[in-house]
């Protein structure tokens, strides 16, 4: 086999087209993804760690980073609980219009973020349908506050937990639940001790996807956020502002800070996931 000699293939294959398909894949991956991200990293390395830190270590940047990650975490947590409930209801219960609801779960994914952004703003603005009620009845202001940012992030992150947990619930062997019930466990105990551990890896995956999406979200947030520095200014917006000021180093530093914090968070979630899989395997 011609390609076996190259040492890339582990075993020769009778199928053709390895060179062609591998070539297309690697070329496009390099041009579209690796080269641009590499440029960002290189420019960061050029600036040096001290300079990046000097730019990041300002009150306004910390406020933006803190807000982005805090709001994304809280939104992903909400989606974790609500997504599990939604997935459970969609798999286990029968009710009219179920298929329609199932399809509607993906709407935040299909609806462009700018559209979601102006729609949520119109709804939750002080004169909007929900905003006016919330303001009059409870005195709660949603649009142009951090609460508004949270709602937008809940919206964009909604499908992820549902779609990762749903197939796992579908595959749960009912006999396991029956066994648990026969052994005298209450339904709540069966859920907490038998079902939930089985869903944990999928829940974590969904949580991580939702978090990753929410942290970097821009389109749906900037309309509802109000964008007041130090209060409702998210990190991606600060990057855009720096770019508009032609302060490339400022934009690069914030982007690198975002990438490193996301990387650490996703790594942590991955480690928890490996730990929970191992615990399940051992049990």
């Amino acid at each position: 086999m011609p390609y076996a000699r190259r040492g890339l293939l582990k075993a020769p294959s009778p199928l053709p087209g390895f060179g062609l398909s591998f070539g297309i894949m690697l070329t496009m991956l390099s041009l579209i993804v690796l080269l641009p991200i590499g440029t960002l990293l290189l420019r960061g390395a050029d600036m040096g760690l001290a300079e990046v830190w000097r730019i990041v270590n300002t009150e306004r940047v910390w406020a933006a980073l803190g807000l982005s990650f805090r709001a994304a975490l809280l939104a992903a947590l909400f989606n974790l609980v609500f997504g599990l409930a939604l997935a459970w209801v969609l798999v286990r219960y029968e009710f009219p219009g179920k298929r329609l609801i199932d399809a509607a779960v993906d709407l935040p994914f299909a609806l462009p973020t700018a559209v979601a952004g102006i729609a949520l703003t119109a709804l939750y603005a002080p004169n909007g349908a929900f905003g006016s009620v919330l303001l009059d009845a409870f005195g709660v202001k949603v649009a142009y506050t951090q609460l508004g940012i949270w709602i937008a992030l809940v919206f964009v992150g909604l499908p992820f937990v549902v779609r990762t947990v749903q197939p796992v619930i579908e595959e749960i062997d009912r006999e396991v639940e029956e066994a648990s019930a026969t052994l005298g466990a209450s339904r709540a105990r069966t859920f907490g001790h038998v079902i939930l551990p089985m869903l944990t890896p999928a829940l974590l995956t969904g949580f991580a996807l939702s978090l990753a999406r929410s942290v970097g979200e821009y389109g749906s947030v900037i309309f509802i956020a109000g964008n007041i520095p130090m209060k409702t200014e998210i990190a991606p917006l600060l990057i855009v502002i720096r770019l508009e000021e032609f302060d490339y180093n400022g934009a690069i530093a914030i982007a690198l800070a975002m990438l490193s914090i996301s990387f650490c968070m996703l790594l942590a979630i991955n480690l928890i996931q490996i730990w929970s899989r191992r615990r399940m395997g051992a049990a």
């Binding site: 991956l29 993804v33 641009p36 990753a212 970097g216 991606p236 990057i239 982007a255 975002m258």
Partner: peptide
């Protein structure tokens, strides 16, 4: 690496192309 764009903010993606 193929999944990488999922965890990069769209704004950061845009920034990368501007730098390049």
């Amino acid at each position: 690496l193929i999944d990488l764009p999922f965890s990069v903010s769209p704004v950061v993606a845009g920034l990368c192309f501007v730098l390049l």
